[in-house]
């Protein structure tokens, strides 16, 4: 992943910085300019708690090339206590045990590498609470 594209995502990926609509209260991760629920442009910054609950999940057996050695791995749509939803991997457990309702802690992990000589790309993954 080219460095400039990676660099601008750092606040969201490293610190779980999100946006909260000042008008309707919807929490958006990552933050956006316009609220998709009410179109308000009044946003405040919030930090997500490093935990969440699985909404839906799968176990990827045929992965993209970058994740070849990690398969099979679980992926889930996770909802944080603030109501933000996002997609991530769930690790440090048997992937078959990941399913709706599972409680997670979010830990800082290496997500992917830009080949053998490129940058290392970090973010958060779920681990069973």
């Amino acid at each position: 992943m080219p460095s400039p594209r990676y660099h601008r995502e750092i606040p969201a990926r490293y610190r779980l910085e999100a946006g909260k609509c000042s008008d309707c209260g919807k929490v958006l991760y990552p933050a956006r300019k316009v609220c998709p629920a009410c179109r308000s442009q009044e946003m405040e910054k919030v930090n997500l708690s490093p935990k969440g609950t699985v909404v839906t999940s799968t176990v990827i057996h045929v992965p993209p090339d970058e994740f070849l050695n990690e398969a099979p791995y679980a992926m889930a749509v996770v909802e944080t206590p603030e109501g933000a939803r996002f997609m991530t991997q769930v690790v440090d457990c048997d992937p078959a045990t990941v399913g709706p309702g599972m409680e997670l802690d979010l830990e800082f992990r290496l997500i992917q590498k830009e080949g053998n000589s490129g940058i290392l790309c970090y973010g958060h993954k779920g681990v069973p609470a």
């Binding site: 839906t56 999940s57 799968t58 992965p63 997609m87 709706p100």
Partner: peptide, 30 residues
């Protein structure tokens, strides 16, 4: 797999290792 994945969100989905079958698998689970 990589080309098709560009139809989903690069920063929020593909970044974390999802594939298209993976996305529809999550729809199926739901």
């Amino acid at each position: 797999t990589g080309v098709l994945a560009t139809a989903s969100d690069q920063e929020e989905e593909v970044y974390y290792g999802v594939t298209f079958p993976g996305l529809y698998a999550m729809i199926a689970r739901a």
